[in-house]
Design a binder for these strands. Structure first.
Length: 245
RNA sequence: GCCCUGUUUUAGA
């Protein structure tokens, strides 16, 4: 069963939901009962395609079968609503979740945080962050990256930097993903000196810049009409053994 | 090694 779930999970992540449902049928035919993780994966696939109502129907099936929705079940649905900007529904689900005796976890918070930031509700996001501290759900790298991305998107680089340093002070270690977010923020801000500095930091800390790091920098230099530097970055990318996408 | 959260580029309307 775990093997089926793993395959169904990755199919759903790629949006091949039809195939995933086919595999689920195959499981049943072989007498393997799909468990909650199987259904969570399928719900995730539907949500990724924007079919949140389909995922909701699946939730009803889950309960009818006698399976118990867990935190991943609710998190998946909440993420689907957040992606459509339906924050009220997402928050309503958080309430349903608690009422059903399922504890929201850090991922629940991160999903809500992302929904708020993407919707431009940075004040609400800040409130959620405070509430997380109160509930002893310490923000992790993902939480911080979401908030930093939010501030970068709205051009508030000083707030983004403050959060970055606050995160470092807490001993959270950024990965290439997090660096990419901040680099992009400075690129959008036209501050290629800082972007380049951060690129250097990635390497200095023993991390590896990825294709997105390079794409971001190339785009940043092109926006500044510094095509010479953009080409140098491009060459650096090839030297690093990466293939342009 | 079963499921859920964070990053780049995207014309027109």
């Amino acid at each position: 069963r775990p093997r089926y779930n793993a395959i169904i999970g990755s199919l759903c992540r790629e949006g091949k939901v039809r195939l995933a449902f086919g595999l689920q049928n195959e499981m049943v035919e072989k007498g393997i009962r799909p468990n909650i993780s199987t259904y969570n994966a399928l719900m995730n696939g539907l949500c990724k395609l924007g079919h949140v109502e389909g995922a909701n129907e699946l939730l009803k099936d889950i309960v009818e079968i006698g399976l118990y929705p867990n935190s991943a079940t609710y998190n998946t649905l909440m993420g689907g609503h957040c992606k459509r900007g339906e924050m009220e529904k997402a928050l309503g689900l958080a309430y349903t979740m608690v009422k059903s005796g399922v504890q929201p976890n850090l991922i629940t918070c991160n999903i809500l945080m992302n929904g708020l930031c993407k919707g431009g509700k940075m004040e609400e996001a800040k409130k959620l962050l405070i509430e997380m501290w109160d509930q002893h759900k310490l923000p992790d790298l993902v939480t911080s990256t979401i908030l930093i991305h939010g501030y970068c998107t709205y051009g508030n680089m000083q707030e983004a930097l403050e959060l970055w340093y606050e995160m470092l002070r807490r001993g959270v270690v950024p990965d290439t993903f997090a660096y990419n977010v901040l680099i992009n923020g400075f690129c959008l801000d036209g501050n290629m000196r800082y972007s380049s500095k951060l690129y250097g930091q990635i390497i200095k800390t023993g991390l590896t810049p990825d294709i997105i790091t390079y794409n971001t920098l190339i785009d940043g230099f092109c926006r500044e009409s510094d095509f010479q530097e953009a080409c140098r970055i491009y060459d650096g990318m090839l030297n690093a053994g990466l293939v342009p996408d």
